[in-house]
Design a protein around this nucleic acid. Structure first.
Lengths: 224, 224
DNA sequence: CAAATAGTGTCTTTGAGACACTATCGT
DNA sequence: ACGATAGTGTCTCAAAGACACTATTTG
């Protein structure tokens, strides 16, 4: 059977086509812990359980666009770091109908999060209530793995920190993602090329103020 | 609007739901080059152009299952390395109808490839004909990036080499994926823990025979 | 023994890791 | 001066990189 023949058969068949949705794992740092945005489900299935914010993909909408919309609608967030994670499609993952879910993970500094709608809140990523709706526990686990894997060799940690930040703050984010303490001096050497000074300092603490930095605009390394 | 309301509206709407397909980028090494399996399209759209092997996802089929099926049908391959790559869903990427495509990349040693069906053949990955059908050029480019990124810190190169192989062979695969020559001694040190000797040697060459190895069954490193 | 490729020993360079030290704030 | 946190200098160690050497086959 050629693809065209299959398509014709598929088009004409009585099979319900799968629906396509997006689900987003929104991470942020709050109360010195990595947290995930979850909403409590009102309706069947999994009524009463927590689930990831999601949305069905509109007919004229890109996948990224649908993920952005989901976060805008459920958390009032715009222009945040968003990256595709994995696509989940096991038959039966949604008991109502076949749903293919394209999952995303998103990173946002706490100061960008406004008041959340009723039923939506942040939960600590390493002590989530159990069970969660659908296969969302697995999606979050994969998001955590991806995050942990990428933090050491990319810039993603900057997306979890305000535009202007101190190095102790940034180091703490790395430590929370990696789950282990880091040596101050080594950490600073490693990120030295990716930051620039603002000239400002913190104040008010009962200790030495710390320098305030921002992310360096251009990658320090020119192409080889 | 709650999710349930949206779902009800979505269900009842006249919108055609997207179709969901899989496309696979099958890589192999042949004639001392990395090659990709492509099939020439017979029908509209993009008739006459080359495209990736793909399939629509059946109603009771997993995504991985559909990708395996596509490769079985188009290349007679079974039980090969297969990993999800990215999901493409821009409206308009297929001019006929909305198609969400979950892309995979697959790796197979040349000796596992049998005779290919009419219109299907291998093409050198770094000198592909242009243009390709749909957004398949982008899918292949992403597959190449993923492959290059992963070769240095994972075992994937073993999937491009027969079960029993020599180190010059394995090194050549690394060099083709990375696009640069490697130092013999350093390469051997790096993979020393991941291989084991078979006790066999090559023969017939006009030079010193090389030892034949296989992949080490268990990861040498115990959990910390 | 010459050509050709397989395989090894070892010096250098780089970066991660560990730790001790100094600096500057508030009280 | 002290408690607390910010920030730096430097030794160690392991891995990556570079290169030169030895080994074993065929003709």
């Amino acid at each position: 059977m050629t693809e065209e023949e299959f398509l014709a058969a598929y088009d004409a068949s009585a099979y319900p086509r799968p629906s396509v949705a997006v689900d987003a794992v929104l991470f942020t740092i709050r109360d010195d812990a990595l947290q995930v945005l979850l909403t409590r489900r009102q309706a069947h299935p999994f009524a009463g359980l927590l689930s990831l914010p999601g949305a069905f993909v509109g007919p004229e909408e890109t996948l990224d666009g649908a993920a952005q919309r989901a976060l805008r609608e459920k958390a009032g967030l715009q222009d945040i770091f968003l990256e595709q994670l994995y696509t989940w499609g096991d038959p039966g993952r949604d008991p109502r109908l076949r749903v293919i879910s394209v999952s995303y993970y998103a990173l946002v500094p706490e100061d960008r999060i406004g008041p959340l709608p009723e039923g939506t809140a942040l939960y600590p990523a390493h002590a989530l209530p159990t069970p969660l709706a659908f296969d969302h526990a697995g999606i979050i686990r994969l998001g955590l793995e991806r995050l942990r894997g990428k933090v050491s060799y990319t810039d993603i940690a900057f997306s979890l920190v305000p535009e202007e930040f101190t190095l102790p703050q940034l180091q703490r984010v790395h430590e929370l993602l990696l789950g282990q303490p880091l040596y101050k001096a080594n950490f600073r050497k490693k990120i030295a090329g990716r930051i620039e000074e603002t000239g400002k300092f913190t104040s008010g603490g009962k200790h030495r103020p710390s320098r305030i930095y921002r992310k360096r605009a251009l990658p320090a390394e020119p192409l080889l």
